[in-house]
Amino acid sequence: MSGSVLALTLAGAWVGVGLGVGALLARQGQPLATAATALVVWPALLPLLAPPDEAASRPAGGPFAERIRGAFAALRAALVDPALSAAADAATLDPIEAALTRADARIAAVDRLLEDPAVAADPASARLHQARAHSAHEVEEVLRKLVTVRVQLGLVALAGDTEPVRCHLGELAARARALEELAC
């Protein structure tokens, strides 16, 4: 086999594998630009073919993780009920839950820092304690209001007035955004 035939065969094999990887990425729902990139740099994109590691992609659970999951699961379960589904779109809960989960992860990170005796003993840590307490209070407030939303959903079932529920959810979304801004 001559050198040029060998080179062409290798180049063809490279592009062929790239085509295969690109097609698999496109089928996974990756953007077309990413799938096209695989044509050339497929070895670097092989990790995208592996199934996503849900545990790794989710922020580490913090002290409020269980309560957040429970509160939103209960609210979504209520909104599935035909008598209550008109009160609010379940999709509006997603950004609120995501913001709360991120805030919870940040609190968990601070807790891990404060476990270090050297950090805890530093005089500046008092400010960190204060900021942590403030964030935790805000998360508590949002969780409390989620219960209020469920109470109001009950009123929707009886009186049919969906406006208070929408107002409360709007307020919760604003609080969730404020939590993000606090972190910035």
Binding site: T34, P52, S57
Partner: peptide, 8 residues
């Protein structure tokens, strides 16, 4: 993996 797909 999301960064990889976005930045490639």
């Amino acid at each position: 993996r999301n960064d990889l797909a976005r930045l490639a």
